[in-house]
């Protein structure tokens, strides 16, 4: 049986820049998949590919295929893909301040999604909007629906963006750093709402984040991207307990944990290379303590781990639990 969202060997280029290479991902209903990696690793581009949004930024899939509910996105026209987005795939952006139209009232911005995608009339759309707002625990929903975006706090705006994503009754939500712009106590509120939607409605959630704390607390599976390639894909438990890829291990060691002694935090030396300067072989080798001649010359293939995960490293740790 195929997953709700399946990326098989997807490569993406914009112009002459080959930005993603051979991405394999699967996500099912009721599941949260975390997409992690440093800036420039290709997380957002992967999300764009999953939504068929690449033409918008002048990009194209050069190899592999993206399947949503069994349909290859490349066989759909732009109209078909547009119907998919909004109706079956909802999107939550990082910055709610830019996702909302500043000159349209809040309620109208949510209404339009269900009118367009579910064919509801004006009254039914508004009823649905107020219902969604109440589900997202927005107090005084009717009053907020008449408000303008600038009158709301950041956390409240992000709930509105989530309400818009839900208005078409989608099966999949893709959230790109949904809480990065928010304060920590508000972040907790938003994450609780997203996790509740997955649990109660059986939504699939693709969560793009750089925050390993969010990943550890929320996700079922985790895909680690580095410089446009998949480094490791595992269930959340083993990926923290026994990371197979040195990059994954390094990422988990960057975050201070409870009771950690000063001086025991380890950064990753160097920085993610730009697409124009990708090194040969394994792209992580210049920053990797284990790199040898093989890593400098040969691209590591994705191989299966005993627990069903994937890793691309010549010197992968066994990843035993």
């Amino acid at each position: 049986m195929s997953a709700l969202l399946q990326l098989s060997g997807v490569s993406v280029a914009i112009g002459k820049a080959h930005l993603l290479e051979g991405i394999d991902l699967a996500l099912d209903r009721g599941q949260i998949l975390g997409l992690v990696g440093e800036s420039g690793s290709g997380k957002s581009l992967t999300a764009m590919a999953a939504m068929g949004l690449l033409p918008l930024i002048g990009g194209r899939v050069t190899a592999g295929e993206v399947r949503f509910d069994g349909t290859d996105l490349s066989t759909l026209g732009e109209a078909g893909r547009r119907h998919l987005r909004g109706r079956r795939i909802g999107f939550v952006t990082q910055n709610p301040m830019t996702a909302l139209d500043p000159v349209q009232r809040i309620g109208a911005q949510i209404d339009v999604v269900s009118r367009l995608h579910l064919g509801l009339d004006k009254a039914a759309a508004r009823a649905r909007t107020l219902d969604l707002m109440a589900q997202l625990r927005i107090p005084e929903a009717a009053a907020v629906a008449e408000a303008w975006p600038h009158q709301l706090s950041g956390g409240m705006k992000q709930r509105i963006v989530i309400a818009m994503a839900l208005a078409g009754d989608p099966d999949l939500i893709i959230a790109d750093e949904p809480t990065t712009a928010l304060d920590v106590t508000v972040q907790a509120q938003i994450l609780q709402i997203l996790a509740g939607l997955v649990r109660d409605r059986g939504l699939a959630l693709m969560l793009i984040t750089h925050d390993m704390g969010v990943v550890a607390q929320l996700c079922d599976r985790v895909a680690v991207l580095y410089a446009g390639r998949l480094a490791e894909e595992r269930a959340v438990g083993p990926i923290f307990a026994a990371p197979a890829h040195p990059y994954t291990r390094a990422l988990t060691l960057c975050i201070p944990r409870e009771g950690m002694a000063r001086g025991s935090l380890h950064g990753i030396p160097g920085a993610v290379p730009s697409a124009a300067a990708y090194p040969a072989g394994c792209r992580f080798h210049p920053r990797c303590a284990r790199a040898d001649a093989t890593c400098r010359a040969t691209v590591p293939a994705l191989s299966a781990l005993p627990d069903g995960g994937l890793v691309a490293c010549h010197h992968a740790e066994p990843g035993a639990p």
Binding site: S153, D183, T185, Q187, Q189, G213, V214, A216, F240, A241
Partner: peptide, 25 residues
């Protein structure tokens, strides 16, 4: 205490229910 509880531990073996503060600043 609320700030500490909002700080998510990067350890999936120590998962706990996210108990956010109600309301806004």
């Amino acid at each position: 205490q609320a700030l500490m509880q909002s700080n998510l531990s990067p350890d999936p073996s120590r998962r706990r229910a996210i108990a956010p503060l109600a309301g806004e600043i």
